[in-house]
Design a protein around this nucleic acid. Structure first.
Lengths: 210, 210
DNA sequence: TGTACATCAGTGAACGCGCGTTCACTGATGTAC
DNA sequence: TGTACATCAGTGAACGCGCGTTCACTGATGTAC
């Protein structure tokens, strides 16, 4: 089977193999290395080592590629979260682990996280299924329910969920800020810090006494 | 004084009057109407009704204009917050009012808020004074201190502050999301909803029993 | 008050650039006989 | 196994566009005498 060998060993293979995958990877690299402002279709093609027209055989247009990058990001992030959830001994630890995994993903891929959030926001405007994001979201909500967050009524439960979601998103966007470096060092690492911040959400505590 | 009259009544005045101010206003309008992607120097000049070269008499370059827009945003937001703080009867109400004002500003000016956050983040990368943002930030921190948030040690106090800041930012970015419409209606308005979400932060509650 | 002149805030044309996208093309791959 | 051919995944040149920025200019304003 000479063709397979050629394909695997030659530096410039026959066609490409899997340009679609290569373009998504290239887009992630450009995004994290050069920032969102530098993310053009041409830059992605350049990064992948193909002509500017090549991506059009795999994506309808620029927005289609960006949407695919965001989708891949959600999948990877959901994986992070699911793995973290599986390792936890009880519901409370699970909720915490999921939150930390969420924030860690954003710390490691800040530009992609930003793009994901933007795409999600755009999709909000139209109606739509949002299956990928929902699977991350549901993971959190389900853990809260499992944990039996101590809220007097369903409205408060929903508010607690929203507060948790907002804090996680805010922390995710600031995850890499150098203002946090001192506390991270004191607490013994990024994850300990994220965990500590999230533990200051109301759902981990008693409702006010009065 | 014929000149003053001319200046005030003519549709195309002598020079302009205050083009700098007009450009900042135009930029805000373009930003909120057409989105961040459409915010070019030329678009701003067009919106203000002047030539593409005119802004260069008032701003060094595009980034200088954007930075000025962000600065103006911080000033307006700080005003919002200060006014809200003054009307509050005690420290707890003050903290809540400040948070709600913060989120309301973001709801009313989502694109500007986003720009402000981006510019602040960029400034984080370099070192710098950040006087405008700090004045908003300090307003929150001071209220927390005044309120005597019940935390066992300074580390926990700082963590509580960070959690509050993250939740406020997250809620600010999602303030206009239509997912919240139902709860907003139930609770009797945007501000009641924002207030309710923020009240689910840990600092309003007792630390965990164990 | 009137005149001469420096300064200031605009204009409009032009520059080079990178972009998204299209198109006719080429050469490798997979398939039918 | 060999040949003919349709299909697929690339190329490279070209398009029109809006952008940031520069430049020589113009005309109104403010100032000195």
């Amino acid at each position: 089977m000479p063709r397979l060998v050629d394909a695997m060993s030659a530096s410039k293979p026959y066609h490409h193999g899997d340009l679609r995958r290569a373009l998504l990877d290239a887009a992630e690299r450009v995004l994290e290395r050069d920032g969102a402002g530098a993310l053009s279709l041409r830059a992605v093609a350049r990064e992948a080592g193909v002509s500017a027209a090549a991506p059009y055989h795999h994506f309808k247009d620029k927005d289609d590629l960006l949407a695919a990058v965001a989708r891949a990001g959600f999948e990877k992030m959901t994986d992070y979260m699911r793995k973290a959830a599986l390792a936890a001994p009880d519901a409370r630890a699970r909720l915490n682990a999921i939150g930390v995994a969420y924030v860690c993903y954003a710390r490691d891929n800040p530009a992609i996280y930003h793009l994901m959030y933007d795409k999600g926001r755009q999709r909000d405007m139209r109606a739509g299924p949002r299956t990928e994001e929902n699977s991350a979201y549901n993971l959190v909500i389900q853990s809260m329910v499992d944990m039996g967050v101590d809220e007097p009524n369903p409205i408060d439960l929903e508010l607690a969920q929203i507060a948790g979601w907002c804090a996680a998103h805010g922390l995710a966007e600031m995850a890499g800020a150098k203002e946090f470096d001192r506390l991270k060092a004191i607490l013994g690492g990024d994850e300990a810090f994220f965990s500590a911040v999230l533990s200051h959400l109301g759902m981990y505590r008693q409702p006010p006494p009065k």
